[in-house]
Write a protein that binds this DNA or RNA. Structure first.
Length: 210
DNA sequence: CCAGACGTTGTT
DNA sequence: GTCTGG
DNA sequence: CCAGACGTTGTT
DNA sequence: GTCTGG
């Protein structure tokens, strides 16, 4: 799972890193810790326009939804089942990159999750990176307000992430720098295995080495 | 056949 | 809109 | 986590 | 006894 992310880079840094211009940049609110349950608008790049960074709302609302309620449970989508489940099956080609500088997981220190240790996961070779996502446009049936929303895909945790996210053993779809364009263009369905080498950066931060 | 779900795995 | 469980 | 189900066909 | 839905 992946319910908490970090994106603290400024507009210029993101634009340079992803070779794209940010739209509505005045609405961008960098945050050390985005809580998915608050449905923040965060930077994404969609497959229909790789040259722009857009601010989409975290928590995908399918086009047939009557209200926003489903958002609480569409922060993530299991990549193994997106082709079958109602909320995602019709939008599997609407791919996006969710631009983050890290994400948070909580390791259970006992059987019941009474005590938890927070970890910030980052990459060693780049400050900002992309998580694989799907996006959709939804119009509120009454107010006609349009929401652009996204979900972050998850996959089974690798060896490292299994030790951190030691309950559900899932982790987000982490894309290597080389895989970003291919992911958007649908040329890959599952990204390459994230390597297991790690580096500890303090007690509660881990870097994944590509 | 039709009403009701449709999603994920924490409330940090 | 489409699937599913009763 | 725990209460409650644990089965089938056709919609008559 | 074991699965599942809430």
């Amino acid at each position: 799972m992946c319910f908490h992310t970090k994106q603290s880079s400024d507009v210029k840094k993101l634009e340079r890193r992803f070779h794209a211009r940010m739209l509505n940049e005045k609405e961008y609110l960098p945050n050390e810790h985005y809580n998915g349950f608050k449905h923040p608008r965060t930077p994404v790049i969609t497959n229909v326009d790789e040259s722009h960074i857009r601010l989409f709302e975290w928590g995908l609302i399918p086009s047939w939804s009557k209200n926003e309620e489903i958002q609480k449970s569409t922060l993530n989508a299991k990549i193994e089942t997106i082709a079958e489940v109602a909320s995602f099956k019709n939008i599997v080609t609407q791919r996006c990159l969710v631009l983050v500088s890290g994400f948070y997981e909580w390791q259970w220190l006992d059987g019941k999750g009474k005590n938890k240790q927070q970890y910030l996961i980052t990459l060693n070779n780049t400050d900002d990176f992309a998580l694989g996502g799907l996006y959709n446009q939804w119009e509120h049936p009454v107010s006609k307000e349009v929401h652009h929303t996204y979900t972050i895909l998850t996959q089974p945790a690798n060896e490292l992430m299994s030790t951190i996210h030691n309950t559900k053993k899932r982790m987000p779809l982490i894309l290597n720098v080389d895989e970003e364009r291919d992911w958007l263009q649908g040329k890959i369905t599952i990204p390459s295995e994230v390597k297991l080498d790690t580096k500890k950066v303090g007690d509660n931060q881990v870097q994944m080495l590509f």
